Computed example of a mutant assay.
Amino acid sequence: MITIQVNEKTFEVHTDFNILQLLKQLKSRQDGIAVAVNNAIISKNSWESTTLVENDSVLIIQATQGG
């Protein structure tokens, strides 16, 4: 198990855990969001191939509409 931060909350996940698995575990939408790991935006087509490591800081941002 490794410890990561997701939107400033601590989570423990298995090693070799990727962003897509994290979103599914959190029951997060996959459309209309942006994901950053350690302040670097990760493109949606890289979510499955981006493996999280100990002490990673993940930020999930929900797009909003406004005017």
Rank of each mutant, 00 (worst) to 15 (best):
Q25S: 10
S57T: 10
W47F: 14
F17I: 01
I61W: 07
S49N: 10
E8F: 09
N39K: 14
L23Q: 03
L23S: 01
L23N: 04
I4A: 09
V58F: 04
Q5M: 10
V6Y: 01
I19V: 13
N45I: 08
N18E: 03
I33G: 07
L26Q: 11
R29W: 00
N38E: 05
G66Y: 10
V37E: 01
A36M: 11
D56R: 00
S49T: 11
N18L: 02
G67C: 07
L23H: 02
L26M: 09
L26F: 02
A34F: 09
D31V: 11
I61V: 15
W47L: 04
K44L: 06
S57G: 07
Q30K: 12
F17L: 06
K24E: 13
I2L: 12
W47S: 03
V53R: 03
N55Q: 14
Q65L: 13
Q21K: 11
T3H: 05
L52M: 05
N18A: 04
E54W: 01
D31H: 12
K27Q: 14
N7L: 08
N38D: 13
L23D: 01
I41W: 11
F11T: 02
A63G: 11
N7C: 05
I19T: 06
G67H: 04
S57Y: 03
D31S: 15
L23R: 04
T51V: 14
Q65F: 12
Q62F: 14
A34T: 13
Q65A: 10
I19H: 06
Q65C: 08
D31T: 15
I19C: 06
T50S: 02
N7E: 07
T64W: 01
V13P: 04
D31K: 15
V35W: 02
E54D: 13
Q5P: 01
R29T: 12
E54L: 01
S43K: 14
M1V: 08
F17K: 04
I19P: 01
S49L: 04
T64A: 10
Q65H: 12
L52A: 05
I19E: 02
I60H: 02
Q62L: 14
N18Q: 05
Q65G: 11
E12N: 14
N7M: 06
E48I: 00
I2P: 04
A40I: 12
I33Q: 06
A36P: 03
L23E: 02
V13I: 15
V35K: 03
D31I: 11
Q62K: 15
L26S: 09
G66S: 09
G66D: 09
L22N: 03
M1A: 10
I41P: 09
T10H: 01
Q62Y: 15
Q62C: 12
T64H: 11
M1W: 01
N45F: 05
V37P: 02
K44Q: 15
Q65D: 06
V13L: 12
